[in-house]
Deep mutational scan, measured.
Amino acid sequence: MATVKFKYKGEEKEVDISKIKKVWRVGKMISFTYDEGGGKTGRGAVSEKDAPKELLQMLEKQ
């Protein structure tokens, strides 16, 4: 499965596409929420050019 690499609050993070719950576009950025486990929801964003094609496909399906 594909992963998304991004920075959040200065920390490098990587999340599996299957854990992503919601995806939306903000200008040229793709924002998303994902399941961190333990009932927590994380947030992240990547630029449109750095987003994996699976993430862009999720955006188109909504």
Rank of each mutant, 00 (worst) to 15 (best):
M1Q: 12
M1N: 15
A2T: 14
V4E: 00
V4F: 03
K5E: 01
F6D: 01
F6R: 00
F6E: 01
F6S: 04
K7V: 13
K7P: 13
K7N: 13
K7F: 10
K7M: 04
Y8Q: 05
Y8E: 10
K9C: 15
K9N: 13
K9M: 15
G10W: 01
G10F: 02
G10M: 02
E11K: 04
E11L: 04
E11N: 05
E11Y: 04
E12F: 09
E12N: 06
E12T: 09
K13S: 02
E14K: 03
V15S: 02
I17C: 12
S18E: 15
K19W: 08
K19I: 06
I20G: 00
I20T: 02
I20D: 00
I20C: 03
K22M: 14
V23L: 09
W24F: 07
R25L: 14
R25E: 15
R25T: 11
R25I: 12
V26P: 05
G27P: 13
K28V: 13
K28I: 10
K28M: 09
K28R: 12
K28T: 10
M29V: 13
M29A: 15
M29D: 14
I30Q: 00
S31Q: 11
F32Y: 00
T33H: 15
Y34Q: 00
D35R: 03
D35Q: 09
D35C: 14
G37V: 11
G38C: 15
G38K: 13
G38A: 10
G39V: 09
G39S: 10
G39C: 15
T41V: 14
T41H: 14
T41D: 06
R43L: 15
R43C: 15
G44A: 08
G44T: 02
A45G: 04
V46E: 01
V46R: 02
S47I: 11
S47P: 13
S47V: 06
S47L: 14
E48G: 09
E48C: 14
E48L: 06
K49S: 06
K49I: 15
D50A: 09
A51H: 02
A51K: 02
A51I: 05
A51Y: 03
A51G: 08
P52R: 02
K53G: 12
K53H: 11
K53Q: 14
E54Q: 07
L55D: 00
L56T: 12
L56E: 11
L56V: 12
Q57Y: 12
M58G: 05
L59Y: 10
L59S: 12
L59F: 13
E60M: 08
E60V: 13
K61M: 05
K61V: 10
Q62N: 05
Q62I: 09
